[in-house]
Design a protein around this nucleic acid. Structure first.
Lengths: 200, 200
DNA sequence: GTCTATATGACGATAGAC
DNA sequence: GTCTATCGTCATATAGAC
């Protein structure tokens, strides 16, 4: 362990700035300044430079986001109610902090998917893992495996899109709309028709 | 009009580069080089500099995307089939051109929504207009106005998310999944149940 | 491990010739 | 309308002292 975990402070600041201002829009000097980390230590911890730092930042952000989603999903056994909690948490975060948030890797993914293969793959991996979390929740809620997988992926796409719209419009309406439409999205058919212990 | 529409060439190149490499990631020199426009003419046409150029580029991109969507929507009267055409066109574009495309303003929206109010508003306007196009199609297909509005907005969020996932994964699967799930998404209840089409 | 100093280049933007 | 030249600033990255 380092003195005060200088490396960790750098990654934390990088994670926030890369998510809010983008990869190209964030300078290394700004990251050092924001982190309060010693100025000479960046290339000591990240000999690979900006790209290596961004890789660590993406992985840390992904981990944090996954933990948050899991935590909210655990608040309800029934999938629709659980995902509503996830959305409610995002809405509250947006309302509390007018600033840009750490809700999505979309900007980094779009920026890097044609300029850096390692960073692109890190984002793709994060997206896959997040979809898997939703899928697992649906499966645990009684959805047949194939339907749960479809639902988890579609859910993630929709949530990602709603986050972008809410941020762009500076209005949580898109996320709230998704919240209200969730039952329809997740129960297009009676997936649990044959089961006596279905949700709702 | 100008000699060979130098301004138009600059905007076209800027529109492509800003969408694929981002606002911060695209240099003015690169835009001039790509456009083949005379090197001294950028600040003649855009005294407002990079931001003014980006504003024009966003508006042009938005107009192009809207025209494309309208064109595909017109291929079928029934909303689900029509939107399938829109998605099919996007999938084909992705498959034909491994390069990044001009399918979405999301990266620009995320980049600028906290750094430039004019650019943020331009992106927000584009998103609203695109949602309105989907809403109009649903309404024309017989959906009650309120349901059409909800469906249009949700549809746009989902499509935007699916584009991002497809680009990041370099795989059209997310868009194809959305294509296959469209009927469920747009018919959560029997909206067109003849005369008595009121949910709840 | 952390610091200063710096190499090297790209950036946005401007001035003035033609 | 277009060009060249350039200013000042910032970027990433490196070298070497301590």
């Amino acid at each position: 362990m380092d003195q005060v975990d200088t490396r960790g402070k750098i990654v934390a600041a990088a994670s926030y700035l890369f998510q809010t201002k983008g990869y190209a829009g964030t300078g290394l000097n700004e990251i050092l300044r924001e982190s309060g980390a010693p100025k000479g230590s960046l290339y000591y911890y990240f000999p690979g430079g900006k790209e290596a730092l961004a890789l660590a930042a993406i992985e840390q952000a992904s981990h944090t986001m996954q933990a948050k989603v899991r935590q909210n999903l655990a608040l309800a056994a029934e999938p629709v109610a659980a995902i509503r909690q996830v959305l409610a948490d995002m809405i509250q975060a947006l309302q509390n902090d007018g600033q840009l948030l750490t809700l999505s890797l979309s900007m980094l993914a779009l920026e890097t998917c044609h300029s850096s293969e390692p960073l692109r793959q890190a984002c793709a991996r994060s997206f896959r893992e997040m979809a898997a979390i939703y899928t697992a929740k649906l499966a645990a809620g009684g959805y047949p495996p194939a339907r749960a997988a479809e639902g988890g992926q579609l859910l993630q796409a929709t949530i990602e899109g709603a986050i972008i719209l809410s941020l762009t419009q500076k209005d949580t309406a898109p996320l709230q709309l998704l919240q209200s439409q969730l039952p329809d999205l997740l129960k297009p058919r009676n997936w649990q028709a044959d089961s006596a212990s279905g949700p709702d």
